[in-house]
């Protein structure tokens, strides 16, 4: 972005609208920086820094306790907020050191899931929904945005306002598992599970996400989740989920792990994540 000749720090959404409406100017909406500035294309001519807009930086849970995270909130702010689910905290703390957490926004983490797949895995499992303000106001689930793409398709000059997570449910449990070269390294494969059980102890809703087993950095394992639906969270259903997962993953090799290895790890880590869910239920 050597050509960037202008920097703006609007105070209102309206100002953003006006700034990005400039014809013939390639604009970057800067919400954090540590990833965006590194990955920015060379043709950026103007930077619109949205971090000063209060509603974009705010983390304010809804009345039912559902986390609502302003898109420009830093990962450190998300980590520290009381409304942030433990699963997301775990993903952030594991993946990103403190100084980078201060310099990466939640929107930036979503825009570049290949940089922070585990944060995206946790968000997917938690059922994150994005609210866009631009180019038009709309809501879309992260799962829908992430599907079938190595990068979420953020609309050109699109502005995410906030990330919303469902309110915690009774009888909800969660768990994760990963394999990595070192304890704090980016996971080669990781599994993220959020389960809601009914009064009879059966799985009413399963949301399972994995990283490292598709071309997308993080994706929901729909088939595996379906295999759990309505079942007790026992060894048999966990094994069934693992079998279902085996048929739906399509890994891509890189220097961290081959296709064969990633394929083999997926059910192992899903099982561990589900066992963590079960273990948490008994706490």
């Amino acid at each position: 972005m050597r050509k960037a000749g202008a920097y703006y720090r609007p105070q209102t959404i309206d100002e953003i609208v006006r700034l990005i409406a400039q014809p013939y100017v390639t604009t970057m909406l800067l919400s954090g920086g540590a990833i965006q500035l590194v990955r920015a294309s060379e043709d950026i001519e103007a930077v619109v820094d949205v971090q000063a807009i209060p509603e974009l930086a705010r983390i304010a849970p809804a009345s039912d306790g559902a986390p609502r995270i302003g898109a420009a909130a830093s990962l450190e702010a998300v980590l520290r907020d009381a409304s942030t689910p433990p699963l997301l905290r775990e993903a952030i703390r594991r993946s990103v050191p403190w100084n980078r957490r201060n310099a990466i926004s939640i929107a930036e983490a979503i825009e570049y899931p290949d940089e922070l797949p585990e944060v995206n895995g946790a968000l997917l499992a938690l059922g994150a929904t994005l609210t866009f303000l631009l180019p038009e106001e709309r809501q879309i689930s992260l799962a829908a945005l992430a599907a079938d793409s190595a990068q979420p398709k953020l609309p050109r000059k699109g502005l995410i306002a906030r990330v919303e997570l469902p309110a915690p449910m009774p009888r909800q449990t969660w768990g994760s598992a990963h394999v990595a070269r070192t304890p704090a390294d980016i996971a080669i494969v990781s599994a993220w599970a959020v389960l809601t059980l009914d009064a009879a102890g059966r799985v009413a809703h399963a949301s399972l996400a994995l990283t490292g087993v598709w071309s997308e950095p993080a994706r929901l394992a729909v088939g595996a989740a379906a295999a759990l639906a309505g079942a007790a969270l026992d060894d048999a259903s966990i094994a069934a989920a693992g079998r279902a997962l085996e048929s739906e993953v399509a890994p891509v090799a890189d220097y961290r792990g081959s296709v064969e290895y990633r394929r083999a790890m997926a059910p192992v880590l899903l099982r561990r994540a589900l066992l963590a869910c079960r273990s948490r239920l008994s706490e």
Binding site: Y7, L30, G33, I35, L37, V47, D49, N99, N102, A103
Partner: peptide, 18 residues
Amino acid sequence: TVLLDGKPVNSSVMLAAQ
């Protein structure tokens, strides 16, 4: 790393204007 309002940030990936 420098401190921005007391918080550590990486100055090589932050615009001076920020």
